[in-house]
Simulated scan of single mutants.
Amino acid sequence: MAENEKPTPDDIRVLDARSLRGLAHPLRMRLLDALREYGPATASQLADRLGESSGATSYHLRQLARYGFVVEDPERGKGRERWWKSAQRGIRMGVNELLHNADPSVRGAMSTMLYELATTHGEEMSTWLGTWREWPEEWRRAWDISDWSTRLTPELAAEMRDKVYEVIQSYREKEVGQDVENSARFRVHLHAFPRDDD
């Protein structure tokens, strides 16, 4: 662990080269996101939600299980019906290590994963923009889409990123249950990167 790196909670999976290869597929990423967002489900339920065939979702769920991202939920289901749930609350990637890995297949898997994440973020924002009028007034005042530019060194940029993470984590610790009136899952996307002056 690096000197400035904080320990990872038990419910956060740290990706290595092997597990990255197991996850870096668009449908697998969507399946895992759906299980984390909406809770346990069968391959057929996930197929309906994602507009895929149940054969495809079933195959990719088994692959996710092979790499330890999902597990069967034995408390649900009857007979041959298999229910799946996420094995962890989230994942963490050593982006720089994986993007600079000596193995080109690891670098390719990391690129696939990053582009898929960026696509998902764009789709989620587009969905919000298309549906925000359907939400109560309190939620229409609580959302944000902003961008800022400031001139920083890499060290200052990393410091700012870490402080933003701390703020977000402090609110994850205050998370409320589904039964709390007027609560909703609240998505936060962070995109931070340098730009050329030209």
Rank of each mutant, 00 (worst) to 15 (best):
N96T: 14
E134I: 13
L32G: 10
A56N: 06
S58R: 00
V106K: 01
A157N: 04
D48M: 01
L31R: 07
Y115G: 09
D147M: 13
E138I: 10
L31Q: 12
E75V: 12
R107W: 08
L61E: 12
E116D: 08
P40V: 04
L32I: 15
S54A: 10
L46V: 08
E155N: 00
S111P: 02
E137G: 14
W83A: 09
F69Q: 02
H121C: 11
E52M: 00
M125F: 11
A158C: 14
Y67L: 04
W128L: 06
S53C: 05
R89S: 13
G79I: 05
L46A: 03
V95H: 13
D147V: 07
A43G: 15
T57C: 08
W132Y: 11
H121Y: 04
G90R: 04
R30M: 00
W139F: 08
E81D: 04
R80Y: 06
A41G: 09
E75A: 09
R66D: 07
T119L: 02
E116C: 03
G130C: 06
L99I: 14
A102L: 07
G51H: 05
Y38N: 07
E134Q: 15
L31G: 10
V106G: 01
A142N: 06
V71A: 15
T127H: 11
Y67P: 09
R141I: 12
Q45N: 01
E97F: 08
G79T: 05
R30G: 00
G39D: 04
A87E: 05
W83R: 12
H121Q: 13
